Simulated scan of single mutants.
Amino acid sequence: MNDRSISLLENYDIEVLRTWRGRGAILCETKQGTLIWKEYTGHKEKAAFQDALLTTIRERGFENVESILKNKEKELLTQDQDGTFYILKTYHEGRECNVKDMDECARAAQMLARFHKVSCMEDSFPGGSMSHPAHVEFEKHNKELRRVRKYLKERSQKTDFEICLLKNYDYFFNLALQITEELRFYQSKGENRFVCHGDYQHHNIIICGNEMYLINFEKCVYDSPVKDLYLFMRKLLEKSGWVQSVGFDLVNAYEKVRHIEKEEYLQLYYRLAYPEKFWKIVNFYYNSGKAWIPGKNLEKLCKVTEQEKNKREFLDKFKLQYGLCPAEI
């Protein structure tokens, strides 16, 4: 971020005492408390949607979230002379949620459920967007997987990473096709009236003493609550090596606050079953230039293949645990 942007803070009714860099932005000590000043790359309409969501959920009792401060012109965004937009938000000083502390992660799952209980909207906010159904998103991934497989097979000299990738490719590619086709059949046809956070992971869950705060709503979108729960679960399951208790503890914690419908369990199963991590590795490889492939990529690929057995065992137990019978899977 350009430090010259700090001068734009004069457009706000605040008194800045000092500034410093942190969390990829500029933090500001003011008489109103600590604020965060950052570049905004989304649409202006999305900022209005984000603000309307934050205002609504606070009014409904979900208060541990950030607020967007308006400038003297009552605008949410401030533009510099180069056309770059900036946004000023409240800031909660603390640490990120500890992914190794399952009690804390269970609390985060319950906070997510509380958020979803207040983020169901009867009326649409201007500027909000609707997510594509999961199977449409997966179909896009599958097209890329098909394109990369063709490229790999035609490549004459292969690196160790490419040899390992091609060795495991058919298994994960066929699994991706199968999951996508089944999900297409069972995808909910109803309209989603929930607004999801869109990026619910430990980086955006801040612990301040005994309080837990949810920040960074830039990716909020109309979608099924499963979207948020899936992302949080997948991240923690991957980090744990798909330890079954991790997944079930998170679901149980969420369920204590908000009931999960049978159809939502089904959607959650398919999202978890799709080989997302494999696709991410392929995507990074194909789009980042192939002249030099970091050794870490090979480590990640080996980890995905090693974890697959544990993942399948977890998913099999998930089906039994939540009564997803063969006719539904």
Rank of each mutant, 00 (worst) to 15 (best):
F194N: 14
V195F: 02
V195K: 07
V195C: 06
V195P: 03
V195R: 07
C196A: 14
C196T: 13
C196F: 01
H197C: 03
H197I: 01
D199W: 06
D199M: 06
Y200G: 05
Y200D: 05
Q201E: 10
H202P: 03
H202K: 12
H203F: 14
I206Q: 12
I207Q: 11
G209R: 14
E211Q: 15
M212I: 11
L214H: 07
I215V: 15
F217C: 10
E218S: 15
V221W: 04
Y222H: 11
Y222F: 10
S224R: 10
S224Q: 05
L229E: 00
Y230L: 03
M233A: 03
M233I: 09
R234C: 02
K235P: 00
K235A: 04
L236E: 01
L236V: 04
L237P: 06
K239L: 14
K239I: 11
S240K: 08
S240G: 08
S240I: 11
S240H: 08
S240C: 10
G241Q: 04
W242N: 05
V243I: 15
V243N: 07
Q244E: 13
S245T: 15
S245M: 09
V246N: 02
V246Y: 06
G247C: 09
F248W: 07
F248H: 06
F248Y: 10
L250D: 01
V251H: 01
V251M: 09
A253H: 00
